[in-house]
Design a protein around this nucleic acid. Structure first.
Lengths: 246, 246
DNA sequence: GAGTGGTCTAGACCACGAG
DNA sequence: TCGTGGTCTAGACCACTCA
């Protein structure tokens, strides 16, 4: 199929990883050694390694080496309350740091939150990590006039779901949540924060939560490396639809 | 921020695209000319172009040139029947070709469909295109003992949603749909089919539909280039959850 | 300072598309 | 056949990590 040399090198290394000859955390041979072993140049070897990095099989660290990625459990995202406990269990191994800040809505955020520009907001930034490896980034926004939740002690969900619990404690109830999901490559800042390559696919999720009156009470921008995360959604057919179908 | 040369070249070209100096369908200058213009080597220019391709800004065609991508409307995926009409409207400009085939479930498909291996299935392959540009790939599987829908005349949704309508006509009603969404890079076959680079992020969606008895009546594997597609899901809080919150 | 990955070059050759 | 992008090389130098 693929006749180019870097694909063959990538295949060979991929096979070593999937068959367990190389296992999680192992350092790959130096690029110069790989070049000698496969009879290719430094640049060609790097092309192969880039493909493996994009697939999430290896991490590359300048000055240290290339390593087989630890495959810790996936982060699962769901906007459904129904599956909230399952979701929490799956994400339990992730340590979360939370910071918060006050700011005014710019044009984009204002559109998401359906508020006028310059509306005061609280921003919560959740960074989830598995050991030394960051694996999720969530930025959650709550208009100040909806609720003032103060500074969070600690986060329980890497994706900022606990904000909605705290909104409920403050008497603000989420009635509806819409999630828009896309796949893209990270910008350089996101790549740096999550320690991934700029060619690694990420799940980008925009979540908007509204109360019964339709007011937006919370919006979130989530960025999750594709190789260690997924989003799950369940939809039940409405009764009306079922009748039409019959 | 980024001090490397290829980032600057990518930034310069990106700016020309976003400001309209280069517009959709335009051919970029030849790589050798770009190399001369920016005082960089062929390889360095290609590194910059690879980044732009990953972002979905350009398409690269061997022997022809590099072109600014046409930004036709996004394909929107939703598993909710509620939004089915909106979804169809948004996807109307896409031409869809459908082929079908009979096969027996392998291990993976059997797990998805919750049937024994070697169960006879019908496979429907939907390829959505915008003019000459493929933009969606959907493989839909229906166990033969659930329904025999025959060969589809034509597809209406690029994502195989019409299979569910045809199931309903055959008396099989979808009661629940679960979608699992991840971001990844395409394998070489998918990249070739969709005419995208192997570093382009794609949305990969596994959809499983069940009837009221919990039997899987349809499963689908969707692959959508991230830069021209998104998935939208709505979730309403259950009443029980609302009471707990209050 | 030794060893590693990250960037870059100049030049070569191959594969493809179009006239 | 010609111009294009695609692959590859040998070698250079820089930036980073760690002893």
């Amino acid at each position: 199929m693929a006749t180019n040399r870097y694909s063959h090198i990538a295949d060979a290394i991929r096979r070593q990883i999937t068959t367990g000859i190389l296992s999680a955390g192992d350092r790959l041979p130096a690029e110069t050694e790989l070049a000698g072993r496969y009879g290719a140049s430094h640049v060609t070897v790097r092309e192969a390694l880039a493909a493996l990095e994009n697939e999430g099989l290896i991490v590359r660290q300048q000055g240290r080496g290339n390593f087989v990625r630890h495959t810790f459990g996936q982060i699962t995202y769901s906007a459904d309350y129904f599956t909230a406990d399952r979701q929490a269990a799956a994400n339990a191994v992730v340590e979360i740091s939370v910071t918060s800040d006050k700011l005014e809505a710019g044009a984009e955020l204002a559109a998401h939150l359906r508020v006028p520009p310059a509306t005061p907001l609280t921003e919560y930034v959740y960074l989830g990590s598995y050991g030394a490896f960051p694996c999720s980034l969530a930025r959650v926004y709550v208009p100040c006039d909806v609720a003032d939740l103060g500074v969070p002690g600690e986060g329980h969900s890497p994706l900022g779901d606990d904000i909605r619990d705290r909104l409920a404690e403050a008497g603000v109830h989420v009635a509806n949540t819409v999630s828009r999901v896309t796949a893209r490559v990270p910008d350089s800042e996101e790549a740096w924060t999550l320690r991934i390559g700029t060619g690694t696919a990420v799940l980008a999720i925009e979540r908007v939560s509204t109360d019964t009156s339709g007011r937006v009470v919370e919006a979130a921008l989530l960025v999750l490396p594709g190789h260690s995360s997924e989003a799950v959604f369940a939809a039940a057919a409405s009764v009306g639809e079922m009748e039409v179908a019959g």
